[in-house]
């Protein structure tokens, strides 16, 4: 029997080490359990440790040993979504749209093109549409069926966006949901909720706050919080900036 020690894992990917007993192992497994769900893929997780931290560790161990994932690649993915891709990207886009009417017109007409040019494009943001808030219409984004969210501009969604409460309620009672966020819309503003049911991802272009005249793009970007680009907040007023107490 071949013995794959830790050094041998490095050899994974060289065809001569194909494991030819996998099919046999699978058939044996099917007979070896009384659990009626043992071959049921949507119960596969039941065969892993119940604690989620141990569960992910077990999966990572298995996949790494078999040469299917590279832990260093996981580190890289985490670093990108933790430190490089986040709402600061969307804030740059919004601040530019507030500053440059021609850019804003392009962004509303063909967001994909504009975002590619800004190098803000990628997974879970392949087909972007930007929707503009106005005194007449307040836009708000949800995914009732899962948690689709425009990753390249906003990063990984916050917990509330993925919560059952938000997914269930945003389409039926958006105004009460906005109240949970402390937002009351002016009389006469209608709400348009975008349920992300396909691979199109929506970014809300919030209204530019009063008192922001004359600010440059960098100062404007500081007013663009994450939630206002989902439509559950308004842009921050210059006077309300955290730490702005001088």
């Amino acid at each position: 029997m071949l013995n794959f020690g830790s050094n041998d894992v490095q050899l994974c990917g060289t065809p001569k080490f194909y494991w030819n007993s996998r099919g046999v192992a699978r058939r044996v497994t099917g007979m070896a359990h009384d659990d009626p769900h043992s071959d049921d893929p949507h119960h596969a997780h039941a065969h892993l440790p119940p604690d989620p931290a141990l569960r992910v560790k077990a999966l990572e161990t298995i996949l790494t040993k078999r040469g299917l994932i590279d832990p260093a690649a996981l580190d890289e993915i985490i670093d990108i979504y933790q430190n490089k891709i986040g709402p600061q990207n969307g804030a740059r886009v919004v601040a530019k749209a507030w500053s440059d009417p021609a850019f804003k017109a392009q962004l509303l007409a063909d967001a994909d093109q504009v975002l590619r040019e800004m190098d803000i494009y990628g997974r879970q943001g392949e087909h972007m549409v930007v929707v503009e808030n106005t005194p007449e219409t307040h836009n708000m984004v949800v995914c009732t069926l899962c948690s689709c969210y425009p990753w390249p501009v906003l990063g990984i969604p916050p917990a509330w966006y993925k919560s059952d409460a938000y997914r269930a309620r945003a389409v039926r009672e958006p105004r009460k949901v906005l109240a949970d966020f402390g937002i009351t819309l002016p009389e006469g503003t209608k709400v348009r909720v975008w349920d992300s049911t396909a691979e199109v991802r929506y970014l809300v272009l919030p209204m530019r706050p009063a008192g922001s005249d004359g600010l440059d793009e960098e100062a404007l970007a500081a007013l663009v919080n994450r939630d206002c680009m989902v439509g559950t907040a308004l842009a921050t007023s210059p006077g309300d900036l955290a730490g702005d107490t001088a």
Binding site: G13, P15, S38, I62, R66, G67, L68
Partner: peptide, 24 residues
């Protein structure tokens, strides 16, 4: 396989799909 999931420390050996592994 389900057995793979049950025995994370087992030495299953190299997988045919290993050449598709996403590198860092």
């Amino acid at each position: 396989t389900v057995q793979d999931l049950q025995t994370p420390e087992a030495d299953g050996g190299c997988h045919p799909l290993a050449e598709r592994r996403l590198s860092a």
